[in-house]
Design a protein around this nucleic acid. Structure first.
Lengths: 135, 135
DNA sequence: GTGCCTGCAAATGTTTTGCAAACCT
DNA sequence: AGGTTTGCAAAACATTTGCAGGCAC
């Protein structure tokens, strides 16, 4: 077991993800921290994000396109990402445990992660796309 | 509408993905082509992969970790990726159309892409992990 | 002949890593 | 004191782009 130390930087990173509730990227976390603590390096942000994910205090959201996002919610849920503006929104997919068991039987895979991301077009981007079509 | 030309390179890329049936990455496609056609550049491979995806002749598989993969299968299906060896395998998830409609209603998102990727540990990697534990 | 396509190299964007100094306990 | 953690810069990795020449049509 690795000994973990309490540092200012680690607390800043965790707080930033909590304040920036809407699935921030590492860059967004860095920018937020940089406003009040300009001396904190970007590598430290990345290292602490990885560390907090390992500890289970944060969840990594693998975006379909672009950088990873981070989520401070503890309960299992899924995400939908807009293919145009890359925004990520929470969604509850009706995936039941039974189907996971079936997948395990079918593929031989185990430890299946139920954190799923799907993609679509968000209402705002759809509106813009239609606007452009008319003009 | 953009005019598309038939080039040797484009054919090579499409064939490579078909021959390397198991969801090759851009690098693997490049390596395969490079064996018989060393003059083909990597940028050309990337450009043609993008082009073929746009045309609908190939499907891009966004891996959870690591580079994108490419799939020549035309029918809709899902993938499961091993979190250790990064291997990607086909899987049929019981996602019904009804749940997609519900997601559209709930989130306001449209054009939802049903190509989903989930992660787990493949049988081979699980075996290796257990072996290491005993020794 | 037009202009899309190619190959090369350089740039881009995201994340990791090497290292010496600083810090936590 | 000892090992973690930090900040910086450089490296690593995947992918895109600028450009001059080449090729499809």
């Amino acid at each position: 077991m690795v000994e973990r130390r309490q540092t200012i930087q680690r607390g800043l990173v965790l707080d930033a993800v909590k304040v920036l509730y809407n699935h921030p990227t590492a860059q967004e976390v860095y920018d937020f921290i940089h406003e009040t603590h300009p001396s904190v390096g970007k590598a430290t942000v990345y290292r602490n994000l990885n560390l907090l994910v390992d500890e289970g205090q944060l969840r990594r959201v693998f975006a379909i396109d672009g950088p990873d996002h981070y989520d401070c919610t503890t309960h299992t849920h899924q995400h939908i990402e807009c293919r145009i503006c890359k925004k990520i929104v929470d969604v509850k997919l009706p995936i039941d445990l039974e189907s996971i068991v079936n997948v395990e039987k079918e593929t031989g895979f185990s430890n299946i992660d139920e954190n799923i991301i799907i993609t679509g077009i968000c209402p705002e981007c759809l509106k813009n796309a239609n606007k452009n079509k008319i003009s």
